[in-house]
Design a protein around this nucleic acid. Structure first.
Ligand code: FES
Ligand code: FES
Lengths: 145, 145
DNA sequence: GTATACTCCGGTTTACCACTAGGGTTTTGC
DNA sequence: GCAAAACCCTAGTGGTAAACCGGAGTATAC
């Protein structure tokens, strides 16, 4: 029941990209990794995956970097997870006939549970994440005083 | 997003135990592993974990085996998952202060999604599993004719 | 044309999963 | 008693993926 580093890193990077979206200029890997303390060479791979998934666009060369492919309120978290999940996993051969009655029942229930989790993720967009972050920052400031 | 073998094996074994619960005699590892095609030495470990979690009771010696610790309708699937999950994981030191605002937000959302999945699992008991199995068996027979 | 920054590909280390192995202990049945 | 049947414990192995690092290549700005 652990949140993997991969997912967390990707979401952190996307939050930064979403926050800088109104400003049109791209964010660079180095900047993101410095802000969020993510290993830069690893973040590079994750952003490449997100690019292949069509969630971000990249600008090469000097003054290059990454921008969101769509507006922050048009990208939900389920898309992000799916993009990272099925990235390089080989087509696992679904041996449908080999499933017994019992494992079929279990699989159905498991899918139902995951459907519930995924519908929650589907409801949140990157903009929601940014807003939650801002709200929490305000809270932290108030506690600090 | 994969259902692990460990969880599936444990649930398969528990289904068998639940089905034989009215009949008072214990089921043995060899029997379960033969019926559900589970590696016996591996199933042994899983049943030991379930025993330590208080979900099954074991009877030692010849004519021994395993029985459910409670009635099948008093064991829900969330209990099973939690029992297997936190079994032998070392106390991972929760470095709470090290979490940034952003990762805090992400963690909250992720927990909310999992809460949704877990509440689904909490609603199903072993008896529900058995009933679903029986229903599906009936279906299979009807298709066969 | 050079500095910048993404892109592609491979290697490495660590950790976990699925499973195996070899002992030990408790109970039954003779 | 005693051996067989069954659970109990601890450790170890092979494969795979996660997390991360490096280097050579390529596109773009100035
Ligand atoms: S285990 Fe996280 S969404 Fe299913
Ligand atoms: S990933 Fe399965 S319940 Fe969260």
């Amino acid at each position: 029941m652990e949140l993997s580093c991969k997912n967390e890193y990707a979401l952190l990077a996307l939050i930064e990209l979403a926050a800088h979206y109104t400003n049109g200029d791209p964010l660079q890997i180095r900047q993101i990794s410095a802000i969020q303390h993510i290993p830069d060479r690893y973040l590079e791979q994750l952003l490449a995956t997100l690019r292949r998934g069509g969630l971000v666009r990249s600008l090469r060369g000097a003054k290059g970097g990454y921008v969101l492919a769509r507006e922050p309120w048009k990208i939900n978290l389920l898309e992000v997870m799916n993009c990272l999940e099925g990235a390089d996993s080989q087509p696992v051969d679904r041996d449908v006939s080999a499933k017994t009655v019992e494992s079929g029942v279990i699989c159905d229930l498991w899918n139902e549970a995951h459907q519930a989790a995924q519908s929650v993720l589907q409801r949140y967009t990157l903009q929601d994440l940014c807003e939650k972050r801002n709200a929490r920052r305000q809270l932290d400031i108030m506690y600090y005083i």
